[in-house]
Nucleic acid binder design. Structure first.
Lengths: 249, 249
DNA sequence: CCACAACGCGAGCAATTACTCAGAATAGCT
DNA sequence: AGCTATTCTGAGTAATTGCTCGCGTTGTGG
């Protein structure tokens, strides 16, 4: 079949994309929790398309009817899972930013911590991650939530970076956004398909180095206009280039 | 329904994952081409799960029967599309590496070209890309092909980098792999979901700067054992570090 | 022009799935 | 216990889809 979501029954009912019903008794709250955990496992195992609602219900030890009492449709289950994940990530981000603000550490350590946290966050249940983020068609609301999260994270990271004198990038906001996207993108990619040639430790080390170099380098604000021959035959220049932290002469 | 691929009919036929039949007349070769192009469009529009074989056939102006004469199942269509794409990418990579070897350019320009090519490659039909790479369960054969392509690309890039004296990373092979993965990951990410805050031009510029800094910085081969205070307050060191391509002592 | 092979057709089968509904079971209260 | 709202049940329904098969059409070699 295939995700026939807002189709089929125009007059009767099923168009309500909202939550349908909220569990009020303890029993039902437990049911919802079991359903969500079962859904996570089933999606992990079968993917979104083949992760059928019947399978989810069975795995949770309840009947399909119960599932549809709390979720208007299959997509809503995935969305709930996604929201739960986003909330968790946001909580973690806040926590470690608070830590770093409370007791500052050298830039290198901060970045390394950041990279490792991001990698760890994605290394946990990578298949589920993939199913939820890539296979599921997320509704606009979720898109917005994700965007908001990312913006907030970039701003917080920028704020953190501004505290370091070594960070010389001309536009900290942009630099933070790039750094965040880079880490996210690579974490995503390596969680889904680990590369034997680049084990997690090496990845973390290299990525940290790359970010540190990027943030502390004063490069790239010319760009745009390109041109300008940057050294005769593509050589010589190494550290000789004008920008350094402390101009030698 | 849902990708019921190697199921259902054990004795009769349909288990052959190979190509089934090859078109020999001109007419049939045209049919196959039309089918592939139609499949690309249909997958783009509906995703893999809802991109039904009937729809593909209809879009191609032929009947389903004809589709199944050349493809053993739906998945095979996606795989064919994917193989076509990989071949194309490999061809482009070879072409521009040849160009760069023929007439060398400064590192910055080379990197910028590399970044822009990668971004452009993914910016073309991003939705189709996503469907094929993320929504489709690719068979081991394809996985291997992709891995091979990536390895080859990394090696070629490393070879190219070795020609630049400014490239100071202690392990060019690793550096090239990281650079490649980074560009691929970001290209992928931004093709799928462009960020208004980071338009393509800015992304290309920043990414180029980041890579250049990374490749020309001698940082990162200590790491691993961590600890060791990296200079009083995380600064100074830049190109000053001792390691270069050739181990000093 | 003829016979044979390659190719194309498309109704329809069998499987699979999202989702419903009428009633049974349970919890919470007096 | 008795009563009501909440929760759970699961067989059933309509839709949808991958894929087949028997037959018609077109190309090719002689």
């Amino acid at each position: 079949m295939a995700t026939r979501i807002p189709k089929r029954r125009p007059p009767p009912a099923a168009a309500r994309l909202e939550s349908r019903k909220r569990p009020s008794q303890r029993r039902s709250r437990l049911t919802v929790d079991q359903l969500l955990e079962a859904a996570a496992r089933v999606f992990e195992e079968h993917g979104f398309a083949s992760g059928t609602t019947n399978r989810i219900a069975a795995r949770a030890g309840v009947s399909v009817g119960s599932l549809y009492q709390y979720f208007p449709n299959k997509e809503a289950v995935a969305v709930a899972l996604l929201e739960r994940h986003i909330a968790d990530a946001a909580r973690r981000l806040d926590a470690w930013i608070a830590t770093l603000v409370a007791e500052p550490r050298p830039l290198g350590e901060t970045l390394r911590f950041f990279v490792e946290q991001a990698l760890a966050l994605h290394a946990d249940r990578p298949r589920l991650h993939h199913v939820l983020f890539e296979e599921t068609r997320l509704p606009p609301r979720l898109h917005d939530a994700l965007h908001a999260w990312e913006t907030r994270a970039a701003q917080r990271l920028a704020g953190l970076m501004r505290a370091y004198r070594e960070v010389r990038h001309p536009n900290v906001q942009v630099a933070a956004a790039i750094a965040l996207e880079t880490v996210e993108a690579l974490a995503h990619r390596f969680a889904a398909h680990p590369r034997a040639a680049l084990p997690p430790a090496a990845l973390a080390r290299e990525l940290t180095a790359m970010l540190e170099g990027y943030l502390t380098g004063g490069t790239s604000q010319r760009g745009l206009g390109d041109g300008e021959p940057p050294a005769p035959a593509g050589l010589t220049a190494a550290c000789s280039a004008p920008r350094r932290r402390a101009p030698p002469s």
